[in-house]
Amino acid sequence: MEVLLLKKERLNGFIEKLQQDFEVIAPLKGDVIRFLPLKNPDDIFLGKNAYFPIKEYFFKKNEVLFQFNGTKIIVPELPSKKRAFFGLRRCDLNAIKHQDMVFMNDIHDPYYTAARKDSYLIGYHCNTAPSPYCFCGSLELADYFDLMVYDKKDDFLVEIGSSKGKGMAKKYASLFSKTSKKISEEEKKIPGSDRLEKKDISLFYNNSDWKKGTDLCLSCGACTALCPTCYCFETHDEVKTSNINEGERKRNWSSCQLQEFTRVAGEHVYRKDREERFKHRIFHQLEYFKEKHKVPLCVGCGRCIEGCPTRIDFVDILNNMKVENG
């Protein structure tokens, strides 16, 4: 794909240009790194990947689906906002790709689509794995960006990945210079990020090693909240006190790690056992999604491990799992 050159001293100029046309969301450093609306381009922090995922900008934590009054249903206006996301890693971009598959291809989710529609994705390539928990190299991630920025010591190389990206390159052409350089497949690999060994995990469903994870599991749902791909939610109604026939239906994030997630009428809980819930997450991420979409849902960002209060490393557990007989 087409590659342009951006001189290092011009990065801030590029961001400032973006700010004139978009609301820019970028990784900022506070107590941890978060994707937040950017004010000053100098605040962008690219030293490490963000602790919190990008998904909240598209698949919102809390969202009003519709208002009702008796049997009348009013769907709220869903304005789209022109936003440019800067500093997305390869894992973040693929997480967006996988959520797009769920909310825009499998079904048409108007809320997700509205939030996603006018967003421009500008990636930042990791030259080395930014965190010891990373394992994206084991997951065959795809190119999924409008622009991708590669840090090549003296300069940035910017790869164009879509027509949206092309439009941006054209609009801000004065900042870029032409180059004959190309980004090879080898350069897209991230050294030190392939620690998940390839094996057929369907052989391990009943393995006794899962205990290593569940003994350390609080079922707190940190893993699924921090996961950039987890997309499960629940819905509930809130009615007005002045008129109990009038109210709102809301949806908010839920988690397969909770008993409440599979509780049905009659107090039956499908996955009551902690181990069942723990395994379900791993199998959905690595197996079940793949059966339907040909790619694993997991993008190997390692946030579920970094953010776990007990640092359960499912990659380590899987790597050490051996086929048991009987």
């Binding site: 978060r34 609080l218 707190c220 749902g221 940190a222 909240a225 008993q259 409440e260 209060p309």
Partner: peptide, 19 residues
């Protein structure tokens, strides 16, 4: 409504808190 039976951590993380 059912009483909320999931741990405090669920809302805590959604609020963007670190542990």
């Amino acid at each position: 409504p059912r009483p909320y039976q999931s741990p405090v951590c669920v809302e805590c993380r959604q609020n963007g808190n670190t542990c």
